[in-house]
């Protein structure tokens, strides 16, 4: 079966609603199908990738470390919209470093996070076969 290009579009902040966790679970489950998967983080979705999230006092699961496992699941294309970061006073340094290991390049560790303009992201959306929204 030819693989399809899946884009998961994440636009909600992480702990105020269940969207972010649900999206991550679908991504992990979907990874078993070995498709060409990309993740996009837009608007409040960029807050999902912030460093130092700690939900201990909320008594809810802190799923933010799970993003660091995405590389193990061969997910290496994580797009963050530059305009959304900027609107929230954030830069790349505020985000968790996410990496993957390139099997074809002697397991070199590479960045998964790509900060892209709205224009570039619009083009990426256009190239997909399936768009999933959270």
């Amino acid at each position: 079966m030819a693989s399809k290009r899946f884009l998961y579009m994440n636009r909600k902040a992480p702990h105020g609603s269940v969207y972010a966790l649900e999206s991550l679970e679908v991504v992990l489950i979907g990874a078993a199908f070995e498709q060409d998967v990309s993740l996009a983080f837009v608007d409040d979705g960029v807050y999902q990738l912030l460093l130092n999230q700690d939900t201990a006092a909320l008594g809810s699961k802190n799923f933010s470390p799970t993003f660091k496992a995405l590389g193990d699941y061969d997910i290496s294309k994580i797009y963050v919209e530059a305009e959304s970061l900027e609107a929230r006073g954030l830069t790349r340094d505020d985000l968790m470093p996410l990496t993957w290991e390139d099997e074809d390049d002697d397991w070199a560790e590479k960045d998964s996070i790509h900060i892209v303009s709205s224009e570039a992201l619009a083009e990426i959306i256009e190239q997909q076969d399936v768009l999933l929204n959270f």
Partner: peptide
């Protein structure tokens, strides 16, 4: 802000 996102990211 759904409409804003759409107008920003639709080609």
């Amino acid at each position: 802000n759904s409409l804003d996102a759409c107008l920003r990211l639709a080609q």
